[in-house]
Write a protein that binds this DNA or RNA. Sequence first.
DNA 1: CGTACCTTTGACTCGTGTCAACAATGGTGG
DNA 2: CCACCATTGTTGACACGAGTCAAAGGTACG
Lengths: 246, 246
Amino acid sequence: MALHMLIDNKHLCNHDKRLSCSNCRLSSLCLPISLELDELDQVSDVILRNQPLHKGDYLYRGGSTFSSIFAVRSGSVKSVYISEEGSEQITGFYLPGEILGMDGLDNNTYRNSAIALETSSICEIPFNKIEALNQQIPSLQRHLFQLMGREITNDQQLISLLTKGSSEQRITTLLLSLSSRNHRRQLSSIEFLLPMSRTDLGNYLGLTIETVSRVFSRLQKQGIIHTERRLVSILEFDELKSIAAG
Amino acid sequence: MALHMLIDNKHLCNHDKRLSCSNCRLSSLCLPISLELDELDQVSDVILRNQPLHKGDYLYRGGSTFSSIFAVRSGSVKSVYISEEGSEQITGFYLPGEILGMDGLDNNTYRNSAIALETSSICEIPFNKIEALNQQIPSLQRHLFQLMGREITNDQQLISLLTKGSSEQRITTLLLSLSSRNHRRQLSSIEFLLPMSRTDLGNYLGLTIETVSRVFSRLQKQGIIHTERRLVSILEFDELKSIAAG
DNA sequence: CGTACCTTTGACTCGTGTCAACAATGGTGG
DNA sequence: CCACCATTGTTGACACGAGTCAAAGGTACG
């Protein structure tokens, strides 16, 4: 009897106050703001809250069948495409409140693999269930389109950066992006931990690890940032912006 | 009376057999294949078939309010982002049967401008009307998500190309892309006209016009392609592929 | 405590950008 | 119809930024 209640409690954990969307600090980032409370609960009910991933764990693998999109709850995830020849290209970093997995919509197959950069909690959003909810909640459908539109504009910003930007512009732009994404989450925009290695940074920005390292050293020597391993402090915000702008 | 009939005819031109989706050779490219005939007509009815654009005309402008997505019927269009500082980045080329405008979904504002590369006919698809149809035709909603997913994976392929590819890889990859897109439309995959200038090509691929020109010359000297102005003939398909692969 | 991995720094190379001159093309108006 | 000009594309010489190769220092993990 006691055991039975325990199991029931586990089944109901989606409704646990601590784990519902209505109680999540990040819901304003990953869900439309205009949802009614009962709509919010409907959405919350289809979301799976799986075991946390550890560093290096796969959230999904490139080539596997698309089923869900994912929202980062804590930690961070990288999205990486692995070509037939084995070369890897990181296509994005995802922080708490951000959504990934939309690379699977094209062929019903994930194009990228998603790998945890650190211990991370992830909400899984089964796509067929959210598609069904779209029929009842129009603002949800619109929100999904908006999320995909944001993914597209993000990728296009990266394209501009890669075609036009020097190594310094690429790195300063990324630092400013991380800074503003931290700010959105009410965290410090001037001091934060990089979730990714120098290697990942270079891969994402199309630079070698040596160049990444040299740029960090140069920025530090100029007194614009201070770095200690993965901890970054921005000392001269305006300088950083002006380098990023070119 | 005669005049009245004429006007009525004009209003009915969407139902003109020549201009309905059910009669369009390209419908298999831009619409889901699984549509019933009456569903196809429903979709066809909301689509606007505007006056053809001439070379250099804007289909939409970056910063204006998002209202529609667009399908290229004939001709070709480039999508270009213009930064505050005035630098331009071409983010895509769109050929007949391909769909653009999804960069407007993020902020309800087009991020890019879309400009005709030559005289082009474009179908305009008002987004709120297609959103409403989604409620009745689930396969249409899925198709829209798929189109956006394709846009995302296309952008990510370009990112890989820009971070890893040499000038030769970038250009040969683009030539192969154009070739296969022509093939999809039952046109020659070995001889075709480039719709864009060398300048546009270089801008898209992150290369200067001089480098583009030199790579074309080199490929021609090696007997892999033949070019004469914008006409490209692929002489050694396998060679081209092996260069593109790296 | 040792090993493996990640990062930093230096010397050198190479590909692409920059600057410049010139050729070819297409549109315009006399 | 042709001369003119603007635009676009080609080719060469040179410079420079990022890649490559190599070595050494730090840090974390078992």
